[in-house]
Structures are given as structure tokens and as C-alpha cells.
Design a protein around this nucleic acid. Sequence first.
DNA 1: GTGGTCTAGACCACG
DNA 2: GTGGTCTAGACCACT
Lengths: 126, 126, 126, 126
Amino acid sequence: MIRINESSPVPIYQQIIEGMQREILSGVFAADDRLPSIRDLAISLKVNPNTIARAYQEMANAGTIYFKRGQGAYVTPKSADDLLEQARAEMAKHIIEIIAIARSMNLDRQQVRRIFDAVLDQQEVK
Amino acid sequence: MIRINESSPVPIYQQIIEGMQREILSGVFAADDRLPSIRDLAISLKVNPNTIARAYQEMANAGTIYFKRGQGAYVTPKSADDLLEQARAEMAKHIIEIIAIARSMNLDRQQVRRIFDAVLDQQEVK
Amino acid sequence: MIRINESSPVPIYQQIIEGMQREILSGVFAADDRLPSIRDLAISLKVNPNTIARAYQEMANAGTIYFKRGQGAYVTPKSADDLLEQARAEMAKHIIEIIAIARSMNLDRQQVRRIFDAVLDQQEVK
Amino acid sequence: MIRINESSPVPIYQQIIEGMQREILSGVFAADDRLPSIRDLAISLKVNPNTIARAYQEMANAGTIYFKRGQGAYVTPKSADDLLEQARAEMAKHIIEIIAIARSMNLDRQQVRRIFDAVLDQQEVK
DNA sequence: GTGGTCTAGACCACG
DNA sequence: GTGGTCTAGACCACT
């Protein structure tokens, strides 16, 4: 289930894209599975259909999903693999941000790793 | 030197704030040092003076800098310490983002750390 | 054999019409030959029978085929000749499109012909 | 000047994209030139601003143009070169269509070229 | 002034 | 039923 945060600065259509990607990654929707129709999702998320349409459209442009005429949207096979790669890249971006901050704080590798581990503990990552 | 990306989704005034904070953190500007004037910085960054003014204003609101009437903006003493704390919080945010991504990929702690180390290596963090 | 692309912007019924016309042109179906029944074609193309019906209906409206009540659809005699003319017109449309593109690129006749020949070679047209 | 054909099956935003690409190709807008603002173009084309926005957005996604925050849309340098390549690919598609038709008509290379030349003459391509 | 997002509601073609 | 396009109009953040 996707949750929309209306007060977030992140656009709703973007939140939907991320939510869908997460569900594809985690296997809720497998290759060639049909996604909920634009109208249905709009109702269940209490969002305007145009907003869902934009999210789906962008995912289709990115090749994550494809449309069958008059039938709906389907998950592109292997898009889970692509998303994995994309997620890895996303993580790398955050790590690079962390490094930039660490540099301005004059932290060395060991100190950065210590902070990293501390947060992992705090967030209970096994 | 601060670099502005005019096409980035991050507001320019925000980019300036982050750049300034970094320079204060790394000691380019120490306690009670005078920051570049709004005009000068606007010229050197090729940005509208209003944008610099907004960045300075927000930093003053946050207590990072203070204004002397008719003289310019100065670094608040101990603001380096505050920024350190703030930077630490910023790092934590990024780490939490990483964890969120890792969770949707079903990665465990060891795998996350491996990716983290790989990027550290790649970015040549000592 | 007709191939359907469910994701193409070209309507499926249109793809079927074009496929059928091609088969009539190339002689797979001759004058007064019986076309596959709507049901059979729907099954073999994995398409909704309504879609086949629409394709046949439009071909009948255009005079390419005709229906015998309760017996099926048949190729109108001389429709191959008409289709030839129609195909020629279709080719002209494409050529005009090519010319439009060439004009916005400021290409002259010689350059256009060179590109044309290159693609003919590549597609192995004897 | 871009002209909109309201009765064409081609979406208006698509017509705008094609028109803009044509103007970039022909040099009306050069590298780093500013395009008309969304609002202005909407007024001059008598179209809803959303429609212009969509066209611009898609061109930005494709890398043809880029946005400067609060300033407008600009032509990406070298996008003229990319568009040239893209136009060439577009021509190739049409040529392949022509070949497909020719094959179902059992035409050989010489005959296809004769038809091609005839249309070139008729359209007065020098 | 600039673009970005969103809603509401309409109309269309397609299956 | 499906998605696709478009309009009208609103509100927002940024420069």
C-alpha cells in the first residue's frame, strides 16, 4: 500500500512513483503484472486521476511499466533489476552527500563509519 | 568557493546557505568574521542580489550569522559548533534515506555497509 | 501472419486492417476468397472478437471485402487493384513526411536520396 | 512561428514539440537561447498554459532544453546536433514503412526509387 | 515575472 | 471498462 504525505514538499505524483517502484522492487507486482487502473488508484489514494496518470506516464517513459491499449498498465519484465540498479545509484548519491558533509567537518573514514553504524543501530537494521 | 547549479531542484538561496555553512564549518570564515557583501557575492556568483539577501536573512534567522547595521554580515561565535551538530543531523537524515532504500531492496546490514565502503573507496576518503 | 503490437499507438483494429490489406495485396487471399472467421482470427491473434469485427467492418465499408450473411467475409474482386493504388498513396504520404523533415534540416535532393539509398541497402532491398 | 492544427489527431503538445524542434534545427533558437515563456506562448498559440508546460517538460526530459529557476527555458547546447540525428532516425522509420509496403506490392528497388523520385519532383525538392 | 503542481471536469478513442 | 488529451483555474515557491 502506498501512502501519500500531503504536506511533504515531494510532489504527490513523485511519491506515487516511488511507492510503486518500491512495490515492484519488493515483489508485490511482478513482471507483466497489471497495476491498479488509474481511476481505481485515484480513488483509493484520494487523489485526482490526472495525478496518477502523470505518475504512470513517467514510469512508462522510464520503461518501468508499459501500457496495453484499453487494458491497463503492466510491469516491464526485468524492470525490477533496473530499479535495483537505480536504487543503488540513489544510495550512492546519499553517500556522496554524507562524504561532502564529512569533509567540511574534517572527519576521517573511521569517524564517518562510526556515525553510520550508530544510525544503523538506532534504526534497528539487522 | 560556492558553486551554483541553476537547474538543480534545490533553490539557489538554499545552495548558497549550504555553501556558506560549509565554509564556516571548515574554517574559511571564523567567529565574528565578516561575510562577503550581498552585492559582491551576487556579482561573483552571477546571481540576483535578492537571492543572496534571502540566503543571508535565513542564516541570520537561524542565528548562524548576524548583521551590523550598515556594515554587513558576520559569523556568530560558536555557530561553528551549532553547525557541527546540524551537520551531524543532516548526515543522519541521509543515512536514514539509505536505510529506507535498503529496506525496500531487502538488504541486510552487512550488504549496506559493503555498498557504503565501496563508495567511500571510490570517493577516496582516507 | 499478422503481428499485433499491443503497446503501439496504432489501434489494434488498424494494425489488423493493414495486415489484411498486405495479405490481399501479396496474394495470400485472392478475389472471392474467404477470410478467417472473426472468432478464429480473434483466437489466433489473441485479441477481442469485437476488435476483429471492427477491422472487418471498416474494410467492408471501404469496399475491400464483403460479407455473405451467415457465411463470413470475402475479398472483393479487383480490390487488389484498388489496394495497389491505395498503397501507392500511402507510400506518397511517407515520402512527403520525409520531405518535410528534410526541409527542416535544409537537405537537398541529393542528400535525401543518399539517405534513402542507405536505408534500402540496410534493409536489403534488391 | 508554430502553427497548431486543432483538428489533427496529433496531440497539441506534440505539435508544439515538433514545431520547437524544427525551430531549433533551423537555427531560430540557438544554443542557450531563451524560449518564449510558457504563458506567452500559450497566449500567442491560443492554447492552455498546461499544454505548453507539458511540451516544455517533455523536451526537458529528453534533454533538448533546460530550465533556469525563475528565469525560463533555454536550448541545451548541441541539442541541434542531437535533433539532427533524431530526424535522421525519423526519416529511416518512414523509409522502412515504404519498404514494407513495397514488399507487399512486390516492387523491386528500381521501381521504388522511381516512385520516390516522382514524389520528389511533385513536391519540388531541388 | 518564471515554472511546478494539483484539482475538477470534460471529451475522445479504444477494447 | 481502459488510458489520453485538454481546458480552466487555483495556489505555490523561486528570482
